[in-house]
């Protein structure tokens, strides 16, 4: 069992400010049921001094997610919007007497919901967030570059593992590991130049040849050799030979290959559509097939498993093992 502080237990067993606010002035929603946790934060703001007079939440998630939401509401009621904006995930975790490292992402979720609720109150369109918040880095958990940067800065993160613990990014299929490293390298470099981080501690991205022998490539199209894979390898990434596949007779033309892949994808699409999603072929490069997931599939934590399923079907159709990866927006463009 997790070693939760008494304060966490108290806020989990007796959550404050649960429920829905009538006519809220700001609403922030983060996470999704697929990710395993989601938070809807509602705030009431007094027009005179922009002070938060009431806050309510609804949370789907584990003990620390519920406790973090509860703590957040207690912390922001009575604060002005400007004061509330200074609340970081560290403050939430601190208020709760600390959280286990694997659970820090719960406090990050709280801070992000607050940010979203205030943006909503100020009339900043949440949809516009995509531009402001940068590209989606982790498709499995729907984590943007902006969220990563904030979590890295606020918590002085310097390793990919802690970034995953604090934001969940890279915790599923891990295909975004390289992008996380890029963001981590960039943000750490900024922090060093601002005197917020010791240079020796900063993470250095290896793909960009910072005195390394690796060739310098432009990030947009770079596909550097992936670093050592994390320990928890999924079946999808192991050298899986599809059961029952026959070795192909001879080399297959690209057209033939794509036709076979299309055919196999068509066969699995109904499964996706049943769940309100869809899948589309984007690119074929050697034995790597990029597909685009749509609808509920996009931020489904099962997307890694889904990709594994697609991978098996495609491997079966082609009679040889292939690797199926989520299409990268920047690469597809």
């Amino acid at each position: 069992m997790w070693n939760y502080s008494e304060k966490v237990k108290d806020h989990f067993f007796n959550p404050r400010n649960v429920g829905v606010l009538d006519a809220p002035d700001g609403v922030g929603e983060v996470g999704s049921i697929a990710c395993g946790d989601a938070l809807k934060l509602m705030i009431k703001v007094a027009p005179a001094d922009a002070r938060i007079t009431d806050a309510r939440f609804q949370t789907f998630g584990c003990g620390s997610a519920i406790a973090s939401s509860s703590a957040l509401t207690e912390m922001i009621i009575g604060k002005t919007i400007d004061e509330a904006l200074t609340v970081t995930n560290q403050d939430i975790a601190g208020y709760l007497g600390g959280l286990p490292p694997e659970k820090m992402h719960c406090s990050v979720m709280g801070a992000e919901a607050l940010r979203a609720a205030i943006a909503n109150y100020r009339g900043e369109a949440l949809e516009a967030d995509d531009d402001e918040d940068g590209a989606l880095v982790c498709k499995c958990f729907g984590i943007t570059e902006g969220l990563l940067s904030r979590a890295i800065r606020t918590n002085a993160l310097t390793t990919v593992e802690t970034v995953t613990a604090y934001t969940k990014a890279g915790g599923s299929c891990a295909t975004c590991r390289d992008k996380i490293e890029m963001v981590l390298g960039d943000v750490n470099a900024e922090m060093v130049s601002e005197g917020l981080l010791e240079s020796a501690k900063a993470f250095r991205y290896r793909g960009r040849g910072l005195g390394e022998t690796a060739p310098v490539t432009t990030p947009a199209t770079a596909r550097p050799t992936p670093p050592a894979r994390p320990a928890q390898l999924r079946p999808a990434q192991a050298a899986v030979k599809p059961a029952g596949a026959k070795p192909a007779g001879g080399p297959m033309t690209l057209v033939k290959k794509i036709a076979l892949i299309q055919e196999a994808l068509e066969a699995v699409r109904p499964t996706f559509q049943r769940d309100g999603g869809d899948v589309e072929l984007v690119d074929v490069e050697g034995d790597t097939v990029s597909v685009q997931l749509f609808g509920t599939c996009v931020d489904c934590s099962m997307s890694a498993f889904t990709l594994h399923m697609v991978q098996e079907k495609l491997s079966e159709a082609l009679g040889r093992p292939v690797r199926v990866v989520p299409a990268d927006d920047s690469m597809a463009a």
Binding site: G36, D37, G61, C62, G63, S64, A65, E102, K103, F141, T164, K168, G171, S172, Q232, S301, M302, A304
Partner: peptide
């Protein structure tokens, strides 16, 4: 079998 009990991020 939930993600949170295992310390991993997935069910």
């Amino acid at each position: 079998g939930s993600a949170c009990t295992s310390g991993s991020l997935e069910p």
